[in-house]
Write a protein that binds this DNA or RNA. Structure first.
Length: 473
RNA sequence: UCCUCCUUAGCUCAGUUGGUUAGAGCAUCUGACUGUUAAUCAGAGGGUCCAAAGUUCGAGUCUUUGAGGAGGAGCCA
């Protein structure tokens, strides 16, 4: 039985076996053992007079142990039950001189460099249990609503997405790259016979499936070779992309809102221990920050806020008007200009979400010029049926749109965006045969994880982050 | 890629205007104590002050360059 189940077991002096790793050994008597099944440890009480001193000395933080004994009600105050140890075995030593994790606070930066061991801390244990729960909740949400999970390719020959810089995939000898007559790289004789990359989005392929299975979603790894050095970007991340036939942009917004609320509620209801631990961690961390930088709501309050409030829905044009009427605009506090046709900057989004509306905001109908080719043109022909969901502290957590389903309009867009039709002939054929209104969006899984865990750096919500200059482990 | 900041003991951090032998807490080791909750108490050991070059009688402290890290911007999820 694991620690999580043992802690919820009635103590009747029954014989139990616990295997796990030592967190602390206090007073030569009290062993706190974690097996990762829960944020809590189980206390094992050792009668030190009955055991060899040299054996007790090896009960260091980090060592793997097996203890046998009776499960009894605890005499102490911190826990309900504990194990009265009759026998214990040290399965794996952890030399206290060398083991880097001590029963004290470590910085997240330090633990990031010890990513192979950071699973053993309370914080990362909670984060990664929560990550599993969110993964499960994503699949449950869609499965319960008759969606089908589609595995879109990770290696792609499609270069039409334009979502960002791509990592090349090749089998060529990089020290002697074969060139063709024109002096260009000879992809014809490469493994796939054409230029290939790691996917930046499964959306185009998901659309193919949606135009037959109606309701589909992808949940897979995504790669961007952008040189982005921020706390919100990774070179390798996981993205969820639902795509739904016959949904228009409003249905799409409804879906995104319901989905995000479901996930936040799931964390609160099913991972209460971990969320509460992370809530306390954040409160402790904020104590050392100046009052201004502390969030108004704590983690649990923020999750409850999302669950209990509808998202504000405004158009890009309305957002510009709100910003132009705002105090920071009039006092010239914004660094970047606010005018129709200019993209919203982080400072503008933050103002709308964190100051003006003070709740999640969905912005729609962006000018076509700074959105992707596949987004559906609105009647005004200046804007497209795009939507961004903005969250406090995170910024853009969801980006999506109604897709352009009219073949001629899409062909014209390809021309405008310099996308050769022969590159995406297969995509265009969905518009040629039985085309239909359809919509979808992308949710960055790690951005969601930042929100539900309260972690401020995206590198701390994925086990082994991939960022520019770092692919350790 | 750009801007700003940081790098001092195993970890978290102090270190004043450039001035003798660079400090604290935790961890480690030795001992005491033994129903503790990051146990407590006493003592001890532990430093290439990120690297290189420079200014200076003298550099942890000032300058330049480099490396690593963080925050912000851009791009986005």
């Amino acid at each position: 039985m694991n620690v999580k189940r043992l802690l919820n077991t009635e103590a009747k002096e029954q014989e139990v076996v616990v295997k796990g790793w030592i967190r602390t050994f206090r007073s030569n008597r009290f062993l706190a053992i974690s097996d990762g099944s829960t944020v809590h440890t189980i206390q094992a009480v050792i009668d030190f007079e009955k055991h060899d001193d040299s054996l007790l000395k090896r009960l260091n933080t980090g060592a793997a142990v097996e203890v046998k004994g009776k499960l009894v009600e605890s005499q102490g105050k911190g826990q309900k039950v504990e194990v009265l140890v009759s026998d214990f075995t040290i399965l794996g030593d952890a030399d206290a001189d060398e083991y880097p994790l001590q029963p004290k606070r470590h910085s997240l930066e330090f633990l990031r460099e010890k990513a192979h061991l950071r699973f053993r801390t309370n914080t990362f244990g909670s984060v990664f249990r929560l990550r599993h729960a969110m993964t499960f909740a994503v699949h449950k949400f869609f499965n319960d609503r008759d969606y089908f999970n589609i595995h879109t390719p990770i290696i792609t020959g499609s270069d039409a997405e334009g979502a960002g810089e791509m990592f090349h995939v090749t089998n060529h000898d990089l020290n002697a790259i074969p060139k063709n007559d024109k002096g260009e790289v000879d992809y014809e004789n490469d493994f796939f016979g054409k230029e290939t990359n790691l996917t930046v989005s499964g959306q185009l392929e998901a659309e193919l499936a949606a135009t037959a299975l109606s309701k589909v979603y992808t949940f897979g790894p995504t790669f961007r070779a952008e040189n982005s050095n921020t706390s919100r970007h990774l070179a390798e991340f996981w993205m969820i992309e639902p795509e739904v036939a016959f949904n228009d942009i409003n249905d799409n917004m409804d879906l995104a809102e319901e989905f995000l609320q479901y996930l936040c509620r799931y964390a609160l209801e099913n991972n209460r221990d971990d969320v509460e631990f992370l809530n306390q961690r954040e409160i402790q961390e904020n104590k050392s920050k100046p009052q201004q930088e502390r969030p108004e709501l704590n983690l649990i309050e923020r999750l409850e806020f999302v669950v209990n409030n509808t998202f504000e829905r405004i158009t890009y044009t309305e957002a510009i008007e709100v910003l132009q009427r705002s105090k920071p605009y009039k006092k010239k506090k914004f660094k970047y200009p606010v005018e129709w046709g200019k993209d919203l900057q982080s400072e503008h989004e933050r103002f709308l979400v964190e100051k003006h509306y003070n709740k999640p905001v969905i912005i729609t109908s962006y000018p076509a010029s700074f959105k992707a080719f596949y987004m559906r043109s609105n009647e005004d022909e200046k804007t497209v049926a795009a939507m961004d969901v903005l969250f406090p502290g995170i910024g853009e957590i969801v980006g999506g749109s109604q897709r352009e389903e009219r073949l001629e309009v899409l062909q014209q867009k390809c021309l405008d965006f310099n996308i050769p039709e022969e590159h995406i002939w297969w995509y265009l054929e969905t518009r040629k045969f039985g085309t239909c209104v359809h919509s979808g969006f992308g949710l960055g899984f790690e951005r969601l994880m930042m929100f539900v865990s309260g972690m401020g750096n995206i590198r701390d919500v994925i086990p082994f982050p991939r960022t520019p200059g770092n692919a350790e482990f």
